[in-house]
């Protein structure tokens, strides 16, 4: 065992040494959310506010293809009531068809419909925005806010923090790189693919009015929508943590029992 400890120390020293030399994009701002940690859950009110920010701001350019309106009423999510979901869905126009005459027609959205996309295809989205606005369904699982093997083990990949940091991270570019500014791009040190982002600053103070009267500064709205996007990426998170807790208790008891049985079986044998 002592040898193993020496080995671990040596390995850590080696990694630590190399890891020091690393540099990358600006790490995301380390804000914390209610859903972190083994027992963390989503804040329902925050998810509902986040949905509103998504709908009134993000959805103008970004698709959310993996979600249906019915999900908004799911357990472990924003927990809108069935009636609320029905009226939320009805505010969208959805293409359906063909009807008996073979024509496509538009109708009001139903809870079973997927969130409609703002553009018919990726090419149209790219042409209208200068770059492809990514689908947001999985964005907090597809972007890393920070790096490091051990850092990510304890703190996660920082996906929601990444979204928050990009939304709140627009700055005037430092003088030395300001002259490199490409046409139609904005300086944002948190943006993963280089510091120049095609999305104009999407939020401004007071832009979205929340029904619960919660503060609506850029910072608050960014936090709320980041939380909402954390839910859309991992809608079963609460069920997962809850089940995990039960499974671990069961396995711990079983391990204890197995240990005593094993001890009893081996009691008479020198080994």
């Amino acid at each position: 065992m002592k040898k193993f400890a020496t080995f671990l120390i040596a390995a850590t020293a080696l990694f630590g040494g190399v890891a020091m030399a690393e540099e990358g994009p600006t790490p995301a701002k380390g804000i914390s959310f209610s859903f972190e940690g083994p027992f963390g859950t989503f804040d329902r009110a925050q998810l509902q506010r986040g949905y509103k920010v998504y709908k009134e701001v993000c959805a103008n350019c970004h698709s959310m293809k993996l979600l249906s309106f019915r999900n908004l009423a799911d357990k472990g999510g924003p927990s809108f009531t069935e009636a609320q979901v029905k009226s939320l869905a009805a505010t969208f126009k959805v293409q359906d068809g063909p009807n008996t005459k073979g024509e496509m027609f538009e109708r009001a959205g139903l809870p079973s419909d997927r969130f409609p996309s703002p553009y018919p295809n990726a090419e149209a989205a790219t042409a209208a925005n200068g770059a492809m606005p990514p689908d947001l369904s999985l964005i907090t699982k597809a972007r890393e806010g920070w790096h490091g093997t051990f850092n990510q083990l304890w703190n996660g990949i920082g996906g929601p923090q990444y979204v928050y940091s990009v939304l709140t991270g627009y700055e005037t570019p430092p003088a030395d790189i300001a002259k490199e500014k490409p046409e139609g791009k904005y300086y944002n040190p948190y943006f993963q693919a280089g510091h120049w982002i095609s999305m104009p600053p999407p939020l401004s103070d007071g832009q979205v009015t929340f029904d619960d009267g919660a503060p609506n500064k850029v910072d608050d709205m960014a936090k709320d929508v980041a939380a909402f996007l954390a839910w859309t990426a991992e809608p079963k998170m609460e069920e997962r943590k809850q089940t995990g807790f039960e499974v671990l208790i069961y396995l711990a008891i079983l391990a204890g029992l197995m240990y005593f049985v094993k001890k009893k079986v081996w009691a008479g044998v020198a080994h």
């Binding site: 990949i157 943590k241 995990g244 391990a255 197995m258 049985v261 094993k262």
Partner: peptide
């Protein structure tokens, strides 16, 4: 069978920690 059984359950605990509390840690965000 008993010694392996005990070790298997301990290993399953380790496995469950990742499945339930860090399911994407081993994977790649991209």
């Amino acid at each position: 069978t008993m010694k392996d059984g005990f070790a298997i359950v301990v290993f399953l605990i380790f496995y469950a920690l990742f499945v339930f509390y860090g399911p994407n840690y081993m994977g790649d965000a991209v």
